[in-house]
């Protein structure tokens, strides 16, 4: 049941996008999202789509993997689309039936929102598809470091993410083991309605939680035995380094972003 679960959705191939510094990718993704909300014409969206397409092609990630990210939020996009159509007031009424009014402005607004959300998800999927969870964690820690002074626990967040990633497979394995053990004693995890099925999970969750806490206790002791004392004065073996490719990517991205601003001013 958990065999096919991969952590995150990293698609490990070698490509110019994969080898970019994670910090560069994270910042570019954020800037890309901002750019999506600056745009106010469909023609400019064509330009954004072309840019994203180039990024996806050079990442060597199959297109369907990028689209896969859309599946869970398909309904959100659909609902946003419908609400925007119905709720935006406009001058030209295209269609009217009782209280339902569809205006030209409504259609336009709904189209924008659906496009924005779709492109936003595809852009962020590209980030997680091309960056391993470890590098992503490193990148986030590094980017948050300057904010330590105002109380952002950068190291602690990164440590939590690392430990979570480390223990997901271990706990999965354990869940499977407990499930088998409880099934052999007659527990039923598959039949009944939703409420019954949720209730039946109790004999699975209780032992799982107890063991997770015991693991946490032991891990804390092992970490202390290895001289762990928080983020102060800690060094890292792997240092993030900007390379030629990163500067090229930044250069391309700056041009992309500048063009969008130019199109807005016009």
């Amino acid at each position: 049941m958990f065999k096919n679960l991969t952590i995150g959705q990293h698609y490990p191939v070698e490509s110019p996008v994969h080898s970019l510094d994670p910090r560069v990718k994270i910042i570019m993704t954020f800037a890309f999202i901002i750019s999506l909300f600056l745009i106010e014409s469909f023609v400019t969206y064509l330009y954004v789509i072309a840019f994203l397409a180039v990024a996806i092609i050079s990442s060597k990630v199959p297109f369907k993997f990028v689209l896969r990210g859309l599946r869970p939020i398909f309904f959100i996009i659909l609902i946003t689309f419908i609400i925007n159509i119905l709720m935006t007031p406009g001058n030209v009424i295209i269609f009217e039936l009782g209280f339902i009014k569809i205006t030209d402005a409504g259609l336009r607004q709904a189209g924008f929102m659906a496009l924005r959300l779709t492109l936003l998800i595809m852009g962020t999927s590209l980030l997680t598809l091309t960056t391993s969870p470890i590098l992503l964690t490193d990148g986030i820690e590094n980017l948050l470091n300057p904010f330590k002074k105002i109380g952002v626990p950068a190291h602690e967040l990164a440590m939590m993410m690392t430990i979570a990633l480390r223990f997901i497979p271990t706990l999965m394995e354990e869940t499977e083991k407990i499930m088998k053990a409880q099934k052999s004693r007659g527990a039923d995890f598959e039949s009944g309605n939703v409420i019954n099925r949720a209730k039946n999970l109790i004999p699975l969750l209780v032992p799982l939680f107890i063991s997770a806490f015991r693991r946490a206790d032991e891990l804390a002791m092992a970490m202390e035995a290895r001289c762990y004392r928080g983020g102060e004065n800690r060094t890292r073996m792997r240092q993030l380094k900007m390379e030629m490719g990163d500067y090229v990517a930044i250069f391309i991205f700056v041009i992309y972003f500048a063009m969008i601003i130019v199109s807005k001013i016009w």
Partner: peptide, 24 residues
């Protein structure tokens, strides 16, 4: 299982010296 911290073997071994603040 309960004493390995990192998601990659070499990162885990580096955990101790990293805590001591050793040069990369």
């Amino acid at each position: 299982d309960n004493q390995l911290v990192a998601t990659i073997v070499e990162e885990d071994i580096a955990f101790g010296p990293e805590n001591q603040g050793v040069e990369p």
